[in-house]
Simulated scan of single mutants.
Amino acid sequence: MTGVWVLIGTLALASVFGLAWRSSRGRVRTAKSSSLPSELQKLVDPGSAVTLLQISTTFCAPCRHTRILLADLAGRTEGLQHVDFDVTDHPEVAQSLGVLSTPTTLAVDAQGVELMRVGGVPKRDTLLDALRPHLP
């Protein structure tokens, strides 16, 4: 009988952690760092108010969905640019930014200063609402 209670407790605990992790994905968070590595700094569009810098890997399925969503959002929004950077061969870049999973999207200003970040596939309306104060 003790084994059954251990199993039930383990499943309950795993469910709580899983739900907490799932709810954090796609949420807009404030910036963690202010400077970008040189590999990423050169990708920032100085003519755009905000560049959405997507950190991806080649084997990441949600990265494809994020790429489509962000490219569409940038195409429809004035002052917004989207760039994708694959860290598969550049793990040091992900490490320097504190990126632990892909996709991670960084919103940076024209000087390359990080404004906010999203882990996982962003929620379109939430991201757009968070970006509005930074857009023309």
Results as ranks from 00 to 15, higher is better:
Met1Phe: 11
Met1Ile: 12
Thr2Cys: 04
Thr2His: 07
Gly3Thr: 07
Gly3Lys: 09
Trp5Gly: 08
Val6Pro: 12
Val6Ala: 15
Ile8Gly: 00
Gly9Cys: 08
Leu11Cys: 15
Leu11Glu: 05
Leu13Ser: 13
Leu13Arg: 06
Val16Asp: 09
Val16Met: 08
Gly18Thr: 06
Gly18Tyr: 05
Gly18Phe: 09
Leu19Ala: 13
Ala20Ser: 12
Trp21Arg: 14
Trp21His: 11
Trp21Gly: 09
Ser23Phe: 08
Arg25Thr: 10
Gly26Asn: 06
Arg27Gln: 14
Arg27Phe: 00
Arg27His: 09
Val28Pro: 06
Arg29Leu: 12
Arg29Glu: 11
Ala31Tyr: 04
Lys32Gly: 15
Lys32Leu: 14
Ser33His: 15
Ser34Phe: 12
Ser34Arg: 14
Ser35Gln: 14
Pro37Tyr: 02
Glu39Asn: 12
Gln41Trp: 01
Gln41Ile: 02
Gln41Cys: 07
Leu43Asn: 03
Val44His: 00
Asp45Thr: 01
Pro46Met: 08
Gly47Asn: 13
Ala49Glu: 11
Ala49Thr: 04
Val50Asp: 00
Thr51Phe: 01
Leu52Gln: 05
Leu52Arg: 00
Leu52Tyr: 01
Leu53Met: 08
Gln54Trp: 01
Gln54Thr: 05
Gln54Lys: 04
Ile55Asn: 03
Thr57Pro: 02
Thr57Trp: 02
Thr58Cys: 05
Thr58Gln: 13
Thr58Ser: 14
Phe59Ala: 10
Cys60Asp: 06
Pro62Asn: 06
Thr66Arg: 01
Arg67Ala: 14
Arg67Asn: 10
Ile68Trp: 10
Ile68Met: 10
Leu70Lys: 00
Ala71Cys: 06
Ala71Gly: 12
Ala71Gln: 10
Ala71Met: 08
Asp72Lys: 14
Ala74Ser: 11
Gly75Asp: 08
Gly75Lys: 11
Gly75Thr: 09
Arg76Gln: 15
Thr77Asp: 05
Glu78Val: 06
Gly79Lys: 08
Leu80Thr: 00
Gln81Asp: 13
Asp86Val: 01
Val87Phe: 02
Thr88Met: 14
Thr88Arg: 07
Thr88His: 13
Asp89Ala: 14
Asp89Asn: 14
Val93Cys: 06
Val93Gln: 10
Ser96Gly: 09
Gly98Asn: 05
Val99Phe: 03
Pro103Gln: 02
Thr104Cys: 08
Ala107Ser: 07
Ala107Met: 02
Val108Glu: 00
Val108Ser: 04
Asp109Glu: 11
Ala110Ile: 02
Ala110Met: 04
Ala110Cys: 04
Ala110Lys: 11
Gln111Thr: 13
Gly112Leu: 03
Glu114Trp: 12
Leu115Ser: 10
Gly120Lys: 05
Gly120Trp: 05
Val121Arg: 10
Pro122Gly: 03
Lys123Gln: 12
Lys123Ala: 10
Arg124Met: 07
Arg124Ala: 12
Leu127Gly: 01
Asp129Ala: 15
Asp129Tyr: 03
Asp129Val: 13
Ala130Leu: 07
Arg132Lys: 14
Arg132Glu: 10
Arg132Gln: 15
His134Ile: 02
Leu135Arg: 03
Leu135Lys: 05
Pro136Asp: 07
